[in-house]
Amino acid sequence: TTFEIRVGDLRITLHNADEEEIRWAEEALRRGIHADEILRTLEERRR
């Protein structure tokens, strides 16, 4: 599944994310964390 998060002009697309990952990514985007860093962190958490 694919889920797109939008916060203002910012956007990130997550693939195969669970609800916790989606909530975490949305909050991180709101705090101004760059999408590349969010994706990198999620990848590390999945390992």
Rank of each mutant, 00 (worst) to 15 (best):
D18Q: 09
R46V: 07
R40C: 13
H15P: 03
I22N: 01
T41M: 11
R23V: 11
R11E: 10
I33F: 09
H34V: 13
I22C: 08
I5L: 04
A25T: 10
L10F: 07
L42Y: 02
E4S: 00
L14K: 00
E21H: 04
E19A: 12
E26I: 13
E4K: 00
R47M: 10
L29T: 03
R40P: 03
A17G: 03
V7D: 05
L10M: 14
A25C: 04
L10Q: 14
R47C: 13
R46M: 06
T1A: 09
H15W: 07
A17K: 02
D9N: 07
F3A: 15
E21R: 02
I5T: 04
I12G: 01
I12E: 01
D36K: 07
E4D: 03
E19M: 13
L39D: 02
E19Y: 10
A25R: 00
R6Y: 15
T13K: 03
L14C: 05
L14T: 01
I38K: 00
R23K: 11
E21W: 06
A25D: 00
I22W: 04
E37R: 06
D9I: 12
I38W: 01
R40S: 11
E27W: 07
E21V: 06
I12N: 01
D18L: 11
I5Y: 00
I33G: 05
R31K: 12
R45G: 09
I33T: 13
E20K: 12
L14H: 00
W24R: 02
E21T: 11
D9P: 04
R6C: 15
E26D: 04
R6I: 15
L14I: 14
L29N: 02
T2P: 11
E27V: 08
R31L: 11
T41H: 10
G32S: 05
R40M: 08
L29Q: 02
R30D: 04
D36I: 11
R46Q: 08
T1F: 14
T13Q: 05
L14N: 00
I5D: 15
I5K: 02
R31Y: 08
L42K: 01
R40V: 10
R23M: 11
T1W: 04
L39I: 07
I38C: 00
I22A: 14
D18R: 09
L14D: 00
I5F: 01
R23F: 09
R30K: 10
T1S: 14
I22T: 03
N16E: 06
E20L: 12
I5C: 14
E4G: 00
T13P: 04
A25E: 00
A28H: 08
R45I: 10
I12H: 01
V7F: 12
R11V: 15
D18G: 09
E26T: 14
R46T: 05
D9L: 04
T41D: 12
D9Q: 04
I12R: 01
